[in-house]
Write a protein that binds this DNA or RNA. Structure first.
Length: 453
DNA sequence: AAATTCCACAACCGCACTCTC
DNA sequence: TGAGAGTGCGGTTGTGGAATT
């Protein structure tokens, strides 16, 4: 049994020995490094090389934990580090890399000679804050449009594949036309169903919207391919790159936006809060061999994902189709961590974190996201800022700037859900997902979905 | 000049992966 | 095959200095 306590920059680690007496092992220092400590560490690495960082403390007398040593070396003492502010070229590169990778700082750092993930992360975060405050777009137009064009291209390709594909036990989902959405009864784990809800106190929402592309062979569970709705939101910055999302975030930051986002706390599709936005990431996974890639950012995974991606592009017979599947079932089948057993990989909005490489494979684009949003009940109570956005209030600059998008969203006719789209009786299956109103009612409230605070 | 806010940076923390035994 | 150590990564927090009020 190990216990740690920390005070005045020192962490004392004790280990209870058999007799019950606590044996003091070591007092590890915390806080800023001194030049003397740096010298010891540099000397140690010069003699022994990098790695085995826990041995540094044992062999050099440095009262720092291995992690701290590694970090200090990697971020400050490494001889190949580039010091000083980022050059304009580097700043441009960061933007491009972030558009490509999302918040994968280590991967970005790997592309930037002499720069550390921490540096890039700090730069990005402060820049994000600044831009958020100023209400500016995160990406310059050329990166934004380039990225979008790239994704649209892929999307069209995927759509062509989908159109060619044959029908199987699950119906094809056409996001553009909002047809053939298969919401099967979730009471049966084997049945496809869109939602999994878990009654977890905010902010740990696990309300997921999972989408799977399925290979031709429906029985080949290993070849399943899962992406999620949040992939359309991609990284935080990609999220913000979308005017709709910008609008959402801007609105959400308003003092009077206490009720929620996307028109309603009851709508709940997107849960955002300022403090959580930084963790917004892209989402997705591939087959079960790639399930680890869902949470890993390893280069080998990248290589593999890229290979898969290339293969998919070349192989017209892959016929990937978008399916709505029960998240827990499908994800288990794919070897993907499910909300039931892990919080990891979930964004603050309850969306699953995706490997950026899969973002590129993701057939969902912002358009599909918007289409999907349309597929949800829209006639929900809206907060003040939301209603303002719909009235073209000229005094509301943010509503003005993004009003078109928001307005379009809310002014979709309230949809009615057929019986088979109705969520299950919570009492019957233990799921706490419910709709308020009749299936034919135009007012449907998802009253247990996440809200914005 | 003092107080407050903003900003950049360093460091820590928790989680998850990989490797070895 | 499972456990534990080592390591990497991303998010968050703490801190000191600059800028602003």
């Amino acid at each position: 049994m190990m216990a740690s306590s920390s005070s005045h920059g020192e962490t004392t680690t004790t280990r209870s020995s058999g007799g019950g007496a606590a044996e003091e092992v070591v007092a590890l220092k915390k806080g800023p490094w001194t030049s003397a400590e740096d010298a010891i560490l540099i000397d140690y690495v010069r003699k022994h090389g990098e790695g085995n960082w826990n041995a540094v403390q044992r062999n050099s007398g440095l009262q720092r934990c291995g992690k701290s040593c590694r970090l200090r070396w990697a971020n400050h003492l490494r001889p190949d580090l580039k010091k000083g502010a980022f050059t304009p070229d580097e700043e441009r590169l960061i933007l491009e890399l972030h558009a490509k990778f999302g918040n994968k700082w280590a991967r970005m750092a790997a592309q930037m000679q002499g720069r550390t993930d921490n540096e890039i992360k700090n730069y990005w975060n402060t820049r994000m804050k600044r831009h958020q405050r100023a209400g500016l777009a995160i990406y310059p137009t050329h990166i934004q449009s380039g990225h979008r064009q790239h994704r649209l291209q892929r999307h069209r390709k995927q759509q062509q594949h989908a159109m060619k594909s044959t029908t199987s036990h699950t119906q094809m989902l056409d996001f553009q036309n909002q047809t053939a959405i298969n919401f099967n009864n979730p009471s049966s784990q084997s049945q496809p169903f869109l939602f999994t809800t878990h009654q977890v106190p905010i902010p740990s929402h696990h309300h997921q919207f999972n989408f799977f592309t399925e290979q031709k062979n429906a029985n080949d569970q290993q070849s399943c391919d899962q992406t999620s709705l949040s992939s359309a939101a991609a990284s935080h910055s990609l999220f913000l790159a979308n005017p709709l999302h910008q609008a959402l975030e801007l609105k959400n930051n308003e003092p009077d936006s206490s009720a929620g986002i996307i028109g309603s706390s009851d709508f709940g599709l997107v849960h955002l809060s300022g403090s959580h936005m930084s963790s917004m990431q892209s989402v997705g996974c591939d087959d079960h061999r790639l399930s680890k890639a869902n949470v890993s950012s390893g280069m080998l995974d990248d290589v593999y994902l890229n290979a898969v991606e290339l293969g998919n592009e070349k192989d017209d017979s892959s016929n990937q189709r978008l399916l709505l599947m029960p998240a827990s079932k499908k994800m288990k089948d794919c070897g993907v961590t499910t909300p039931e057993n892990s919080n990891s990989g979930l964004t603050s909005i309850g969306m699953r974190v995706e490997e950026p490489a899969v973002v590129e494979m993701n057939p969902l684009d912002d358009d599909e996201l918007t289409s999907l949003l349309y597929s949800f009940p829209s006639a929900s109570p809206t907060p003040q800022w939301y209603r303002r956005g719909t009235t073209n209030n000229d005094n509301d600059s943010s509503g003005d700037a993004y009003g078109g998008v928001v307005l379009d969203l809310i002014h979709r006719p309230a949809m009615t859900l057929p019986d088979h789209l109705m969520p299950p009786d919570p009492a019957a299956n233990g799921q706490d997902l419910s709709l308020e109103g009749s299936p034919t009612s135009t007012l449907m409230l998802w009253h247990n979905l996440p809200t914005i605070y």
